[in-house]
Design a protein around this nucleic acid. Structure first.
Lengths: 199, 199
DNA sequence: CCATTAATTGAACGGTGAGCAATTAAAAAA
DNA sequence: TTTTTTAATTGCTCACCGTTCAATTAATGG
């Protein structure tokens, strides 16, 4: 069993998060278990509660880490020089979700208890993902429509999210759709053209 | 306790479904419990397993009922004469989801165990929802593009779904967006215009 | 009225998140 | 160094969960 001299509070928090994230990736939200995470790192269940306060805050922290990896995934894709950064973004959204399906679905499967708001620090870190998209949209909008970049970006993320969700949960397959990514990209480009973007 | 003379097999199935649907609406997927449903109708847990086979098939049946109510909700909205049937559809999608949030989210929260396909009978009944949208899209597409109606409809449902999901899970609110319905409608109309629809 | 058949039960099993008194180790004081 | 104080860590307890299945109970056919 773990002893306090083994890890500082910060190290322990990182250890739990690391193993929790791994466990979530392996078994998904429905089978995720705080007890199992505790067992794997050799600490007792109660320790996780001392460090994170509750099951929900632990899951929220794990999912926030996923958001950050997701944003990094997009940046990596964009770093590869390409003539079509928008298509790269949409494809990056899809590829992260499908390569890390358990982590990605956990983000939307988990909901904080009624009345409990997402802690500010976590909300802030999650925002980094949207920031990437806002930046790329703003870069191709004409100056006179720059003010709409943020709202448009949010809407396009929602558009891609819908297609990605249906692709991964089998809705599209059930209806015979074979190219969800192509559809999502088409919808995004139509909206950008309508907003006057040049690319 | 329930006795077999009280209900035929078909009546029992309807009874479980009715109470299960009510319970899902009240507490949502995360707190849904087959034991609780059994207690409420005065039968033992095992009886639900005899009738539905497993927890997952029970939930799938409950969610299928939700799909049907959702399709009916759209038809009711469309029955009210309106000059803008597309806007009515998008608004109907949103209003059902927000009025029946627990039922709506349960549809996407639940996933069948790996390797288990949705029973054909249930998949068929769920399809009725998409059929409504395909019909309405086909009605406004020019004849030479009628063949695209089905694919386009699927994509537009995904678009609206993404906006609706973000509206209900708080993502939009967190980013300061106040009109998800307006955004979704705008995206849908852009895509329809691009496809040559007249309305 | 009995024998057969089938529906229904509920205890048992191995899990879960949560709370918390007891324990144990580190830190501070003597 | 030894003792006291403080705080981290434990793991038992509780009330649940889905699932299984031997035993029971009721309806049916002879």
């Amino acid at each position: 069993m773990g002893r306090r001299s083994d890890h500082s509070r910060a190290e322990l928090e990182a250890l739990i998060l690391e193993e929790g994230h791994r466990h979530m990736a392996e078994v998904g939200f429905a089978r995720f278990s705080a007890r199992e995470v505790a067992k794997r790192i050799g600490y007792a269940v109660g320790t996780l509660y001392n460090v994170f306060g509750s099951y929900d805050l632990l899951v929220a922290a794990i999912n926030t880490r996923t958001f950050e990896q997701w944003a990094q995934h997009l940046e990596n894709r964009l770093a590869d020089p390409s003539s079509d950064r928008i298509a790269t973004l949409v494809a990056g959204y899809f590829s992260f979700a499908s390569e890390q399906m358990n982590l990605w679905t956990a983000i939307y499967d988990h909901r904080l208890p009624a009345g409990m708001a997402m802690p500010d620090a976590l909300a802030q870190r999650r925002g980094a993902l949207t920031d990437v998209i806002v930046r790329e949209i703003a870069a191709i909008l004409p100056d006179e429509h720059l003010g709409e970049a943020q709202r448009l970006a949010r809407s396009l993320v929602a558009t891609v999210h819908g297609h990605c969700a249906f692709a991964l949960n089998g809705s599209f397959a059930l209806l015979g759709e074979t190219d969800p990514l192509g559809m999502a990209t088409a919808r995004v480009k139509e909206a950008l053209v309508a907003a006057g973007a040049r690319f």
